[in-house]
């Protein structure tokens, strides 16, 4: 299957700051692809280069089988992280303007906008000014503007921000539908449980470099053993080789440093008299654990370098 987007060895600097270094990934039709990373990692810059908003210093982007053109821009729906709408304009004309900029005929745009607004319970607000809408409504309006022109590539950055659980479910269903319809979706978010629920594959960027790339299941298997779940009494913090300790429904969840095994932790616990263990098992790591584990690995060296 041909990739909808193929990002190859992208590099971009702003002055002396290296924002993205040698990042590569492919996104295929019919998948939701997770673009992950901590704040300032280079995700947004990578998206902007992918969409031809920024030009890369090195590397290339192949989109729909070639270079970006005006016509190809009309096949892309983009919901940026830094987003907004004309506050002093009414909802419907705003959406019509954005839809026509995506190549749509005005009458067709009006018809499709009406359908989307009805589906997202916004139709009765169509004549209101954007500034009169709630934050959640803003978010839904922007999702409408991202999807109204029926794009083949959908790029969404934090799509669930500001949504209540009911609307989150509604939007998730919409993205699932789009995937089933064969659209390629690139999703950037910090909500790892959403990534686990929706994404087929991910790339994790840290400090401008792609540090993880592949299928979610395969990545989780690679990191299995790097976390343990235990139940008991006592203080389970400050154990050697443990990156992070989290309590979850009465159980302790310990994310381990790379190279530290569950046996090492068990041995350390067995030597202590102040703890009682009821349950100890190797946990399948969550993406959250993997994210923290991978991102934290580089931190001590970085902090040391800063201190020097």
């Amino acid at each position: 299957m041909n990739a909808t987007v193929s990002v190859s060895h992208l590099t971009k600097s702003f002055g002396r700051f290296l924002a993205v270094k040698d990042v590569s990934f492919d996104v295929y039709p019919g998948e939701i692809f997770g673009l992950l990373g901590p704040n300032g990692a280079g995700k947004t810059t990578s998206i902007r280069m992918m969409l031809d908003i920024f030009k890369p210093d090195a590397g290339s982007v192949t989109i729909f089988g070639g270079e970006m053109t005006e016509a190809k821009k009309n096949r892309i729906g983009y919901l940026p992280e830094e987003r907004g709408l004309y506050q002093d304009l009414k909802l419907e004309p705003t959406l019509v303007y954005l839809a026509t900029l995506k190549g749509m005929d005005e009458s067709e745009a009006r018809r499709r906008i009406a359908d989307w607004l009805k589906r997202l319970d916004l139709y009765e607000h169509r004549a209101k000014k954007v500034q009169e809408l709630s934050r959640g409504m803003h978010q839904k309006v922007q999702i409408v503007s991202t999807l109204v022109h029926d794009p083949d590539l959908i790029v969404i950055d934090e799509p669930f921000a500001g949504l209540d659980p009911v609307n989150t479910r509604l939007i998730k269903d919409i993205f699932e539908e789009q995937r089933e319809a064969g659209k390629a979706i690139v999703m950037s978010t910090h909500q790892m449980f959403q990534v686990e629920a929706l994404c087929n594959r991910i790339v994790l960027i840290d400090k401008g470099v792609a540090v993880l790339y592949g299928e979610v299941g395969e990545i989780k298997r690679q990191f299995a053993g790097n976390a343990v779940t235990l139940e008991g009494q006592g203080d389970f913090e400050h154990l050697p080789g443990v990156l992070e300790v989290r309590r979850d429904n009465g159980a302790w969840h310990l994310a381990l440093e790379t190279g530290v095994s569950a046996q090492d932790v068990l041995r350390a616990l067995a030597r202590r008299d102040d703890v009682k263990i009821k349950r100890f098992e190797v946990a399948e790591p969550s993406l959250d654990d993997i994210f923290i584990s991978v991102v934290s690995e580089g931190r001590p060296a970085e902090e040391e370098a800063r201190g020097a």
Binding site: P80, Y86, Q142
Partner: peptide, 11 residues
């Protein structure tokens, strides 16, 4: 209004 990035994805 932070709409400029949406516009730049089209033009």
């Amino acid at each position: 209004n932070r709409i400029v990035e949406v516009l730049l994805s089209s033009l």
